[in-house]
Amino acid sequence: MVRAFVTLVFVAILGLAFGRLALDYVPDAALNQTAVHYAELTPPETGAQNVVAAIIVTYRGLDTLGEVTVLFLTAAIVALVLAQTSGPTKGRGSGLLPSGELLQTGTRMLTPLILLFGIYVFVNGHLTPGGGFQGGAILASAALLLLLADPVRRFSHRLLSWVESGSGVFYVLIGVFGLFLAGGFLDNRILPLGDFGSIFSAGAIPLIYALIGLKVGAEFSSILESLEEAEDH
């Protein structure tokens, strides 16, 4: 009882602070300097239509590299923690209900479409909303559908780790190319900027976003698989 009261008081104090912040908030009338810089220089410098994609891939590209590294570490740690606590095994997939005919047929039909949509989302990341992270999540949802349709299915660990580490290596290589051929690490102008608004434009942004998408998709798939895994072999 005392604990609930103390918690309530703490949350109320925090609420007062937040309330002051929200009530005194006046929206800016114009963009701040950083945002104006990005808005005006994104088309001539990067050739991308989507300013958010330009910021993520080019202006703050090093942060994105760090982010996918953090995701890789997360996937590795999840697999490690779950492998260490493996319990008694009762045979693969015991105690799991088989999925229905409907789900299996639907999976067979939908998986290629979902994969295609994921690839569409990250290849068009520099033109439309979307990009590597969203596309990677869509790829992982195809993997999720496969896991749901067949609970004892295992993805090929070799394929996942090749896709994951291969796209990571190429990502860093493109960054190093930028260091020598263009203005700096992860500069997208190692490829021609092309026509503004066409699919082969914006230099290396579509390439980098595709690599991010593959990497994120493989990482999410492996997180999902290690958490779903009924028994560790």
Binding site: A35, A39, V52, T64
Partner: peptide, 18 residues
């Protein structure tokens, strides 16, 4: 610069969600 919203918080939140 007079027509779009601030893209920086959006890029930040995209990272935060992932």
């Amino acid at each position: 610069a007079a027509q779009i919203v601030d893209p920086v918080p959006q890029a930040l939140v995209l990272t935060a969600i992932v």
